[in-house]
Deep mutational scan, measured.
Amino acid sequence: RCGYYVEKKKRFCRMVVAAGKRFCGEHA
């Protein structure tokens, strides 16, 4: 899952990502 920290939401993104990727499409 995406490891991007969403500052405005004060939590991690947690969106599912493709195999081998660290971030989702929105945060890549």
Rank of each mutant, 00 (worst) to 15 (best):
residue 1 R to T: 15
residue 1 R to A: 11
residue 1 R to Y: 07
residue 1 R to C: 13
residue 1 R to V: 15
residue 2 C to L: 08
residue 2 C to E: 02
residue 2 C to G: 01
residue 2 C to V: 03
residue 2 C to Y: 02
residue 2 C to W: 13
residue 3 G to C: 11
residue 3 G to W: 11
residue 3 G to T: 14
residue 3 G to H: 03
residue 3 G to S: 09
residue 3 G to Y: 11
residue 4 Y to I: 10
residue 4 Y to L: 06
residue 4 Y to R: 00
residue 4 Y to G: 01
residue 4 Y to S: 00
residue 4 Y to H: 02
residue 5 Y to T: 03
residue 5 Y to E: 01
residue 5 Y to G: 01
residue 5 Y to N: 01
residue 6 V to S: 14
residue 6 V to A: 04
residue 6 V to F: 14
residue 7 E to T: 10
residue 7 E to L: 05
residue 7 E to A: 09
residue 7 E to G: 06
residue 8 K to Q: 13
residue 8 K to R: 06
residue 8 K to T: 12
residue 8 K to I: 11
residue 8 K to C: 08
residue 8 K to P: 07
residue 8 K to F: 08
residue 9 K to D: 14
residue 9 K to S: 14
residue 9 K to G: 15
residue 9 K to M: 15
residue 9 K to E: 14
residue 9 K to W: 15
residue 9 K to T: 13
residue 9 K to I: 15
residue 9 K to Y: 14
residue 9 K to A: 15
residue 9 K to L: 15
residue 10 K to Q: 14
residue 10 K to R: 11
residue 10 K to D: 07
residue 10 K to H: 14
residue 10 K to E: 12
residue 11 R to W: 02
residue 11 R to K: 14
residue 11 R to Q: 14
residue 11 R to H: 13
residue 11 R to D: 13
residue 11 R to C: 09
residue 12 F to Q: 00
residue 12 F to K: 09
residue 12 F to I: 10
residue 12 F to A: 03
residue 12 F to N: 12
residue 12 F to D: 13
residue 15 M to Q: 11
residue 15 M to S: 14
residue 15 M to K: 04
residue 15 M to D: 04
residue 15 M to A: 09
residue 15 M to Y: 02
residue 15 M to R: 05
residue 15 M to I: 07
residue 15 M to N: 02
residue 16 V to L: 07
residue 16 V to G: 13
residue 16 V to Q: 10
residue 16 V to W: 06
residue 17 V to G: 02
residue 17 V to M: 07
residue 17 V to P: 11
residue 17 V to D: 01
residue 17 V to A: 12
residue 18 A to T: 14
residue 18 A to V: 03
residue 18 A to H: 12
residue 18 A to W: 01
residue 18 A to M: 04
residue 18 A to E: 12
residue 18 A to C: 11
residue 19 A to V: 06
residue 19 A to H: 04
residue 19 A to Y: 03
residue 19 A to C: 04
residue 19 A to G: 09
residue 20 G to R: 04
residue 20 G to W: 15
residue 20 G to L: 13
residue 20 G to T: 05
residue 20 G to M: 08
residue 21 K to N: 05
residue 21 K to I: 14
residue 21 K to A: 11
residue 21 K to Q: 05
residue 21 K to L: 07
residue 21 K to F: 01
residue 22 R to F: 15
residue 22 R to I: 15
residue 22 R to M: 10
residue 22 R to T: 12
residue 23 F to R: 06
residue 23 F to H: 08
residue 23 F to V: 06
residue 23 F to W: 09
residue 23 F to I: 00
residue 23 F to T: 08
residue 23 F to S: 02
residue 23 F to E: 04
residue 23 F to C: 06
residue 23 F to A: 03
residue 23 F to K: 03
residue 23 F to Q: 00
residue 24 C to K: 00
residue 24 C to N: 00
residue 24 C to T: 01
residue 24 C to M: 02
residue 25 G to C: 11
residue 25 G to F: 12
residue 25 G to R: 05
residue 26 E to Q: 09
residue 26 E to M: 07
residue 26 E to N: 05
residue 26 E to V: 12
residue 26 E to H: 06
residue 27 H to L: 15
residue 27 H to V: 07
residue 27 H to C: 10
residue 27 H to W: 11
residue 27 H to E: 00
residue 27 H to S: 00
residue 28 A to R: 02
residue 28 A to T: 14
residue 28 A to P: 02
